[in-house]
């Protein structure tokens, strides 16, 4: 048996293709990003070693501050919206008296399967200053409130964040709904018998039991928000001006618009560190004991 499962040739056949591909395409570029962030490099020529100068420059760059700030706004908006609304809807749909639960679930989840390009272009049409759905709705209700949502430097980042919030709410809903369903019913019943209302019972019993799921949702939403890119690229091109830059956008622009691959790599490294810190923080703050019923 040991010879059977310890067959070295077979182990090599099974693991090497995956290991090689992963090392070359995922791991090696990661090391490259770290290494190249210490250089002034145009992506072609050998480049000059700068040590930490890219980082020094980065921390003094006005654009870097905007990018970090926008990433935080984006992360907070999508985390609050997706997890908050997802929780309420999950509690609602979990109630057996609700009619049409299947249709509700499908409606909530359907945007998740769309591509980011379709979603962004659809919302550009919704936000359109002249003919957009949103302005037409205000008009239909007799309000003269007209906005060019994506052209206002103060509002654009919020408008973009709402698109992502809408796109992936259903994902968090599905995660939370599955977790709510896995809690044995007598937990809630006990609270109800003691006189708690449905929502109070959920707040006191269900929410604490969902801790594991919340931890996962939070990490997902916050790291996703910090590294946002596609929405800005498609909907505003980082603008108006530079008002919707994020770290990934800064990286993209540095490398592919002005050929500063080293500087771009430095902002990518800052992004990784940022993501690591929030992941650790979330793991710290949201206790991680696994609950077994």
């Amino acid at each position: 048996m040991n010879k059977f499962l310890g067959n070295r040739a077979a182990v090599a056949v099974f693991i090497l293709p995956a290991l090689l591909l992963y090392s070359v395409i995922v791991f090696w570029p990661l090391l490259q990003t770290l290494y190249r962030s210490l250089f002034q490099w145009d992506g072609l020529n050998p480049g000059t070693f700068l040590f930490l100068d890219n980082y020094k420059e980065l921390f003094q760059d006005e654009l870097f501050r905007t990018s970090v700030y926008n990433g935080l706004i984006f992360a907070v908006i999508i985390a609050v919206f997706q997890i908050g609304v997802g929780t309420l809807l999950a509690f609602g749909v979990a109630d057996a008296y609700v009619k049409g639960r299947k249709w509700l679930r499908i409606s909530f989840f359907i945007p998740v399967v769309l591509s980011v390009t379709v979603v962004c272009q659809l919302w550009m049409a919704v936000y359109n200053g002249e003919y957009g759905l949103l302005n037409r709705l205000f008009q239909a209700f007799g309000m003269s409130y007209r906005q060019d949502w994506l052209s206002d430097p103060d509002k654009a980042i919020y408008a973009i964040a709402m698109v992502n919030a809408w796109h992936f709410m259903g994902y968090h809903f599905a995660l939370l709904f599955a977790a709510v369903k896995s809690i044995p019913e007598h937990f809630l019943e006990a609270a109800r018998i003691d006189g708690a209302s449905k929502w109070k019972a959920h707040w006191l019993i269900t929410v604490p039991l969902l801790r594991e799921t919340y931890r996962f949702c939070l990490v997902l939403a916050v790291t996703g928000g910090l590294s946002a890119f596609a929405q800005m690229f498609i909907m505003t091109g980082g603008g108006p001006g530079t008002s919707t830059y994020t770290l990934t956008y800064l990286m993209y622009r540095s490398a592919f618009r002005i050929n500063e691959f080293g500087y771009g790599s430095a902002s990518a490294v800052v992004l990784v560190i940022e993501c690591l810190i929030v992941t650790l923080l979330i793991n710290r703050l949201v206790a991680r004991d696994r609950i077994v019923y």
Binding site: V26, W28, P29, L30, Q32, T33, R36, G43, T223, S227, F229, T248, M251, Y252, A255, F261, G264, S265, A268, V269, L271, V272, C275
Partner: peptide, 9 residues
């Protein structure tokens, strides 16, 4: 590892 981080290399 977020995809964004290894795009350039």
């Amino acid at each position: 590892i977020p995809v964004q981080v290894i795009l350039l290399p």
